[in-house]
């Protein structure tokens, strides 16, 4: 007689069994999947917000500049050389005082006559504009450059960067806490549903044991059931999120606001996010049923 404990035939049987079980507990499954969908929508929404703030921060970061004002007698070439060899500097541009005046004139929209300030009368110093590779190293970079000979003073959007860094840190914490809570909630939900499923099949499980079913054979359909519920929930969450996000993107593009806030529409970022969400939801379902089975199914 065959003594295979779990083979391809068993797998087929288990799969059918989970489908039957889901069909039998249809409403319960629907409600569970629905609540999971809601919590994962929030989770996914947070993820999208995180991705977008990331993008905004990168935008701002790439625009953060360090302005280095030089003494009149400073050696610009030497400073240029030093800047080029400084770690953390993405690029640096030398702005001679004439160009500075020109830019100033432009930014003032030529409202003020500045003709008398050209040449020797130019009150502006020569300066360098430096861009850092990342926003958070800007303060350190500024301190280092301040020490260069010939540098009068260094200026950067100190406050902006500080706020930016704090907001990112804070957002990450909030994101982590809420996601963990939602994940826990989803697991508990699945646990309850699977518990009810186990209880409603108690008699069948007893008979299966008498017929010589292996533990894995008895457990597997429940784990599958949990995974299917998790998957269904996430799938609906992904669909809802997709539609809402798409609408939002379209809306933002029409608004003037879009000039500052450009939503992430890159499929290379969004697709892995949705697939990841599906995998997480499915795994959460499996995990929830495993815990539930461990507690309620004594085989």
């Amino acid at each position: 007689m065959e003594v295979t404990l779990l083979n391809i035939n068993s797998l087929g049987y288990c799969l059918r069994q989970s489908i039957v079980s889901i069909y039998r507990n249809f409403w319960l499954v629907l409600v569970t999947a629905g609540i999971i969908a809601v919590s994962l929508s929030v989770f996914g929404g947070l993820l999208l917000i995180a991705v977008n703030t990331g993008q905004i921060i990168r935008n701002v970061e790439s625009n953060v500049e360090i302005a280095i004002f030089l003494y009149d007698e400073a050696n610009a070439e030497e400073i240029q050389f030093k800047l080029d060899n400084l770690v953390g500097v993405r690029n640096s541009t030398f702005v001679p005082k004439e160009q500075g005046l020109e830019e100033f004139r432009k930014s003032m929209n030529m409202a003020i006559p500045l003709d008398g300030l050209s040449g020797k009368n130019n009150p502006l110093p020569d300066l360098f504009r430096v861009k850092a590779v990342r926003a958070e190293i800007v303060p350190e970079l500024a301190r280092e450059i301040q020490e260069f000979p010939g540098v009068e003073y260094v200026e950067y959007g100190e406050k902006v960067i500080d706020i930016l860094n704090r907001v990112t840190g804070w957002l990450n914490t909030v994101f982590l806490v809420i996601s963990s809570l939602l994940a826990l909630g989803a697991i508990f939900l699945i646990m309850t549903t699977i518990r009810i499923s186990v209880l409603s099949r108690q008699e069948e499980i007893g008979i299966m044991k008498y017929l010589g079913a292996s533990n894995s054979f008895i457990r597997f359909p429940f784990i599958l059931e949990g995974m299917v519920i998790g998957w269904l929930g996430t799938l609906s969450a992904a669909l809802v999120l997709g539609v809402v996000y798409y609408r939002l993107v379209v809306l933002l593009k029409q608004e003037a606001l879009a000039f500052f806030v450009q939503p992430v529409t890159d499929m290379e970022i969004l697709l892995p996010l949705l697939i990841g969400l599906l995998v997480i939801g499915t795994l959460l379902g499996g995990l929830g049923s495993m815990v539930s089975i461990h507690r309620h199914l004594k085989v």
Partner: peptide, 9 residues
């Protein structure tokens, strides 16, 4: 069912 439980084809 008795055979399904044993994983028979």
């Amino acid at each position: 069912f008795a055979l399904e439980v044993l994983g028979q084809s």
